[in-house]
């Protein structure tokens, strides 16, 4: 498989990059690590006329102290570099989530912003052009059907970005820059449950910074995949607990790889907040995740299995949160 022809622009700074993306009226793609974009170009899943290289743009680099003791992470930071950063190492859950992305090779090239923008996947669309000619187009390929759930009126492709549920759980927000200037957006609002339009990034807009608020609590991340690394998860779960270990005041638990966006597991959260974090409530909370997940798509593993995996992972995650001593700096 070969790349299609494209124009290639190397802007010197963020303003130029945004201008260049805006000038192409939605027919350009930002190229950071390229670990997903280049594959999708070869598969002809996207066909931008131009690639705008945002690797190394100074505005997208650096890990700085954020407001109120939080973290301000450049969206263009390499995942491998972030793993080496002491403040991220102190955020055990985020470190684990970044570590779960792809393989060492992919983390050497891939960026945090790129992972947050990871396109949703489905085995009816993430295939070569020749493969796709054997099927009628689906919602993602400008058709009017979902091959996964034929009754579905939207695309049900999976969001499998490992860092997304963790950063949602941490209450992270994004600084976006587009033709109309800069705006801030909670990461939870960045995603929507639609495999085609999975996020609300406007044409020409880029993620510039990822802001992680100071969390006076514990974080944890768990993922289960068919193999260790180089794989998307059957499911992943991320959690943040604030307050006494057995009696958290605040709790956020988010699942990944189960829908077109990260899914808050609010039933499970509510149960723990009400009854505390004990072995008995952990079991009950894990069971309660079924109510949060609703209809899960039959992609890459059977839907019943995905629910089962989330249940098992949440039980382990809550146990992590009950025992972890770490306090996010």
């Amino acid at each position: 498989m070969q790349l299609p022809p494209f124009d290639y622009a190397v802007p010197r700074n963020l303003a130029e990059a945004v201008d260049r993306l805006a000038a192409s009226a939605g027919n350009a793609a930002a190229l950071a690590g390229g670990t997903d974009l280049l594959v999708n170009l070869k598969y002809r899943l996207v066909a931008p006329a131009a690639l705008v290289a945002i690797r190394g743009l100074p505005e997208l680099r650096g890990v700085r102290d954020g407001a109120g003791g939080g973290l301000d992470i450049g969206a263009g930071e390499l995942l491998a570099d972030l793993l080496e950063h002491p403040r991220i190492a102190a955020l055990g859950g985020l470190h684990a989530a970044i570590r779960a992305v792809g393989s060492q090779h992919i983390r050497n090239l891939g960026t945090l912003g790129g992972n947050l923008c990871l396109p949703t996947r489905c085995w009816y669309t993430n295939q070569s052009e020749a493969w796709r000619t054997a099927r009628t187009p689906c919602w993602k390929t400008e058709g009017l059907v979902c091959h996964v759930i034929p009754s579905s009126t939207t695309c049900r492709a999976l969001n499998s970005a490992d860092t997304a549920p963790m950063l949602v759980a941490l209450g992270a927000s994004l600084v976006l820059r587009g033709p109309r200037g800069e705006r801030a957006l909670p990461l939870a609002d960045f995603y929507q449950d639609d495999g085609v339009n999975q996020h609300t990034l406007q044409p020409g807009e880029l993620i510039v910074r990822v802001l992680v608020p100071a969390v006076a609590g514990r974080s944890a991340f768990r993922k289960l995949a068919a193999r260790t690394g180089l794989d998307y998860g059957y499911a992943s779960v991320a959690g943040v607990a604030i307050g006494p270990a057995r009696r958290p005041r605040e709790l956020r638990v988010v699942a990944g790889s189960v829908a077109s966006r990260p899914v808050r597991l609010r039933h499970a959260e509510a149960l723990v907040l009400e009854r505390g974090l004990t072995p008995e409530t952990i079991e009950a909370a894990a069971e309660a995740t079924r109510a949060d997940l609703g209809e899960v798509t039959n992609l890459f593993s059977p839907p019943g299995y995905k629910k089962r995996v989330v249940r098992g992972l949440v039980a382990k995650l809550l146990a992590d949160l009950a025992t972890t001593k770490e306090r996010a700096a």
């Binding site: 085995w123 295939q127 193999r227 260790t228 180089l230 794989d231």
Partner: peptide, 18 residues
Amino acid sequence: GQVLNPSRLDYKMPRSYE
């Protein structure tokens, strides 16, 4: 009749870790 997982990503083989 169509192979759903014709790639090393979706055709699951373990790695050296396993």
